[in-house]
Design a protein around this nucleic acid. Structure first.
Length: 568
RNA sequence: UGACCUGUGGUGUAACUGGCAACACGUCUGACUCUGGAUCAGAAGAGUCCAGGUUCGAGCCCUGGCAGGUCAACCA
């Protein structure tokens, strides 16, 4: 695991949610030998996103709270969409988040033989039949939520005939779509899912694990609950849209169970975040159409994207705790996610100075060849992180935004004739503003006060501002990537008749290639976290090379000056 | 003309078997500060979708409405 803290030691006092209460009740009633066993069941057809992180934290967190276990199970019943690449990324992401399924890795495909045998059992019991009709016909007989369905003409086939047909389906004698196996339940049920649901379909696709062995594959409803049952799951936690599936889930368990043990499905509201989309289909679309650089583009709400952006597992876990678990289908403000990273990184991130929009400053009374190694604090929130040296020279860079030729009343930073502190260095006073023929400021001349070395006030005089800076001769030239929200609309999904991509923010990425960082960052590795003082939290991007380090801005610091600016 | 689910400050969550609505984010003050960060102190903001009812007392219970979500894939 790339981050040393695992999820176990951050738990402590979680708020009880409605699922806790239901588990407490189950335990009090002595159900399932008082076990708590959950599972996280992703389909390997895409990368995990922050919504999955909520589910992962919930499932693994619950098990930890009750001294139970959590399985990782790949729900791979549809070979046409699933790939090994996704399996690997999912395992990496779950581990990175700080959770471990130990030796309990399962695939729904592990259960294909048992599922198939169970289907045969249902046929023998007269509870399943083969239907020869095509998809359209079957669907039209299904009725609507308001109108009951009609029975298929094949519904009352003889058991022997069903057995024979299903066997031949399995052997590959029929083409895709020619036949399906359906459970025989109730075509008039007010619940659409109970109207003789299809449980097996013919698919002549290559499966990422079972290869070409099978010609028939079970449907989700026919696989999920049974896998839960065979794995010994006690609480099968899923999202709200499966609520209407629960009677069917229970129906299959009823056919299967041979003891008092029974898994129970509980539904909670999936996570919705402002200014983003959260469906694998839409995220895939962004990737495929090249709107982002990949699943791990730092603007993506995927776990791999957040990781590359500089989020920490701890911050995501804390976020997950904070948002709680309910059945209310709401929308969480991204600012809460951002708060979670700031909170964690403030306590842990190495401080460093970096200038991302350089303006050269010449300190005219400072010796030409002198290089002073000044002391800087690595993290004021954590003394154990120690100190480092920062080289100071006659020519430095400061942030362009930190100088104004004609500063307004509330601008505290540098201006002509003004004195400010250079962090850990000296007090400097601006004496000259150098411009090119277009009137653009190209350089500042300052003088420094040798008595203020280290940034201390020699005589108790105050300066209004402290600026970060980087030596022009020692600074490490770098690329910095700034990110903004991917969408301009709070709910890009919430507009009927308007495609979500219409709301994409054209300025969600800006690349600054003329940035200078203090030499300390030379030793950093991809994904290392930093606070660039006064700017925000950044981490090193894997695109970095020794010649050109690249940093991503995870999130900016809270900035009351910028906020005040925005209001004018 | 259905079934199931949901409805508490701007947002998200709390409120044990009914006892004067709490916390977090966000917002706004002020203090402090070698990060306009962090920290600290404080403020504003809901009377719990509506209407009845039960009760000394209801966000919690009952009745009836209203609003929103989900369900008609050989997807999960």
């Amino acid at each position: 695991m790339s981050e040393n803290n695992t999820a176990n030691n951050t738990e402590a006092k979680k708020k009880a949610n409605f699922i806790n209460m239901q588990i407490d009740a189950d335990l009090a009633a002595g159900k399932n030998d008082k076990r708590v066993h959950t599972r996280f069941p992703p389909e390997p057809n895409g990368y995990l996103h922050i919504g999955h992180a909520k589910s992962i934290c919930l499932n693994f967190g619950l098990a930890q709270q009750y001294g139970g276990k959590t399985n990782l199970r790949f729900d791979d019943t549809n070979p046409s969409k699933e790939e090994t690449e996704y399996v690997e990324s999912i395992m990496e992401d779950v581990h990175w988040l700080g959770f471990d399924w130990e030796n309990r890795l399962y695939y729904a495909s592990d259960f294909f033989p048992k599922l198939h045998a169970f289907a045969i059992q249902l046929i023998k019991e007269g509870k399943a039949y083969v239907d020869d009709q095509d998809a359209e016909t079957i669907s039209s007989q299904k009725g609507t939520p308001q109108k009951p369905g009609m029975e298929s003409p094949h519904r009352n086939r003889l058991v022997e005939e069903n057995l024979d047909l299903f066997e031949r389906m399995t052997a590959g004698e029929f083409n895709e779509g020619e036949k399906v196996l359906r459970a025989k339940i109730d075509m008039t049920s007010p619940n659409m899912h109970m109207r003789d649901p299809i449980i097996y379909r013919i698919m002549k696709a290559h499966h990422h694990r079972t290869g070409d062995k099978w010609c028939v594959y079970p449907m989700y409803d026919f696989a999920h609950g049974q896998c839960d049952y065979w794995e010994g799951i006690t609480h099968s936690i899923c999202t709200l849209e499966f609520e209407v599936h629960r009677p069917l889930y229970d129906w299959f368990i009823d056919q299967l169970k041979d003891s008092d043990y029974r898994p129970r499905q509980i539904e909670f509201a999936r996570l919705n975040l402002t200014y983003t989309v959260m469906s694998k289909r839409k995220l895939l679309e962004l990737v495929k159409d090249g709107h982002v650089s990949g699943w791990d583009d730092p603007r993506m709400p995927t776990i791999s994207g957040l990781r590359r952006r500089g989020y920490t597992p701890e911050s995501i876990r804390n976020f997950s705790d904070k948002i709680g678990v309910t059945k209310v289908d709401g929308m969480i403000d991204v600012s809460l996610l951002e708060f979670s990273v700031r909170e964690h990184l403030n306590k842990t991130a190495q401080r460093v100075m970096g200038v991302i929009n350089p303006l050269k400053v010449v300190i005219t009374n400072y010796p030409e060849d002198l290089v002073e190694e000044l002391d800087a604090v690595n993290n004021p929130e954590d003394e154990t992180m120690g100190m480092r040296k920062v080289p100071f020279t006659r020519e430095i860079y400061i942030e362009r935004d930190d100088f104004m030729e004609d500063p307004p009343r509330k601008f505290f930073r540098l201006g002509p004739g003004r004195e400010v502190r250079l962090r850990y260095a000296y007090f400097v006073t601006c004496t000259d503003v150098i411009k090119d023929e277009n009137g653009e400021i190209t350089e500042l001349h300052c003088t420094y006060d040798p008595a203020s070395k280290g940034g201390n006030s020699p005589d108790g005089r105050k300066v209004k501002a402290t600026l970060h800076w980087v030596s022009a001769t020692h600074g490490v030239k770098s690329e910095v990537r700034l990110y903004d929200r991917l969408f301009n609309d709070e709910d890009p999904n919430g507009h009927k008749d308007v495609d979500f991509k219409e709301f994409m923010n054209p300025d969600s990425l800006s690349v600054l290639s003329d940035c200078y960082l203090e030499p300390f960052i030379k030793d950093s590795k991809p994904l290392d976290h930093f606070q660039f003082e006064r700017l925000g939290y950044f981490n090193m991007d894997p695109d970095s090379t020794p010649e050109k380090p690249v940093f991503n801005r995870t999130v900016a610091l809270r900035d009351s000056w910028a906020k005040a600016q925005g209001k004018e």
